[in-house]
Simulated assay, not measured.
Amino acid sequence: MSTQLVEGKVVIVTGGGGGIGRAIALEMARQGARVVINDIGAGLDGAGGSATPAEETQELIRELGGEAVISTDSVSEWESAQRIVACALDSFGRIDVVVNNAGILRDTIFHKMSPEDWLSVINVHLNGSFFVSRAAAEHFRQQQSGAYVHMTSTSGLIGNFGQANYSAAKLGIVALSKSIALDMQRYGVRSNCIAPFAWSRMTSSIPAETPEQKARVAKLQQMTPDKNAPLAVYLASEAAEHVTGQVFAARHNELFLFSQTRPVRSVHSAEGWTPQDIAEHGMPALKASFIGLDRSPDVFSWDPI
């Protein structure tokens, strides 16, 4: 096995201009990949547009001695997603890995969420992951190889306040990834998800006033974006040739494998069920296995280690 896990591979990293995307792009380059840095240069809410973040990532890769090109096309439209993959083919002659990382936030409590807030987040996260993945799929099929690494979130896997759009998109990405893994396994193509943890603009509003709060924030700040990059590189590599259809997380120095939805309890009635029977017998029997209204911080309640 090469000491560089993705040596010679061509990798697209969407949202590669900063944060987790930049960290993944840099680690891909360190491990021998040629990188397409896709980033429209928008803010966290999707507004604006500048090539500067992608240019900064490109310069960092070049300083490492790596090769990188920039794509400023949006993932959220079919035609522009095609151009992202075409950029890889035109620049490097092939495509081996797609990292679906691009994202925006439009957090609003559900009963105040506008259609625009819903659609904009779904379009970037869920539709974008489909569009870019689909644009690469035929090339993967023809060459009988390829890997997808999608970014999900514990906001979708577990739950969070004020993120119906984001949570729905991120859980949808898990189903998309599993479907890709099932449909394309015969062509040697793999598809996995990462739920990343990282200190960023999204978590920087956590209070840090008391000594206890300051100590907790200091620990959270250890979860830098680069902590997610080694897992992404591994999943892109031939070292993970038998790993597909899975959901992982990287949290500081911890790695997690997530369960996936399966039946947890059943109850049977030989005569079938009436609504009254369900109320009197069926639901009381199932209730012991109900899943609580947990949020991500409730489940990941310990400090990162």
Rank of each mutant, 00 (worst) to 15 (best):
G128E: 04
D107L: 07
G49R: 14
T108V: 14
G188P: 09
A102C: 12
H242C: 01
V98F: 02
G282V: 08
S204Y: 11
L119V: 00
H281L: 04
N100T: 09
D96R: 12
Q213A: 13
V217M: 10
E238S: 14
S153D: 09
L257F: 00
R62P: 02
H125V: 08
G16K: 08
A218N: 10
Q260D: 13
L26S: 01
P230M: 07
E59H: 12
S259L: 07
F110W: 14
P53E: 11
H252D: 05
G49E: 12
I278V: 13
V121Y: 01
I84Q: 08
A181V: 04
T224V: 15
E116S: 13
V243L: 06
E55S: 12
S259M: 05
S296N: 13
M28I: 02
E56R: 13
I84V: 12
A54K: 03
E280N: 12
V99D: 00
E59L: 14
A102Q: 09
Q260W: 00
W273Y: 04
L171H: 05
D73E: 15
A169L: 02
I24L: 10
F300N: 05
G8C: 09
V124E: 00
R295I: 07
I24S: 07
K112E: 11
S80C: 03
P196Y: 15
V121G: 05
I40E: 01
A54E: 02
A136F: 06
N165E: 04
E27S: 05
G43H: 08
A169T: 05
P211M: 13
A218T: 07
V124P: 02
V6N: 08
D303T: 06
K178Q: 15
G162P: 08
E254H: 07
G156F: 10
V299T: 13
A285W: 02
A137D: 07
I70Y: 03
D107G: 08
C87F: 00
E59P: 00
S76G: 11
V13S: 09
A215T: 13
I122G: 01
P115F: 06
A42I: 05
G272R: 06
A81S: 15
L60Y: 05
T203F: 14
Q143Y: 11
A33G: 15
N100I: 06
A54V: 09
A285I: 02
H150E: 08
W78I: 05
A88G: 09
I206R: 13
A23M: 10
L60F: 12
K112W: 04
F300E: 02
A195D: 04
S74L: 03
W273H: 04
L5S: 14
F92T: 08
K219F: 13
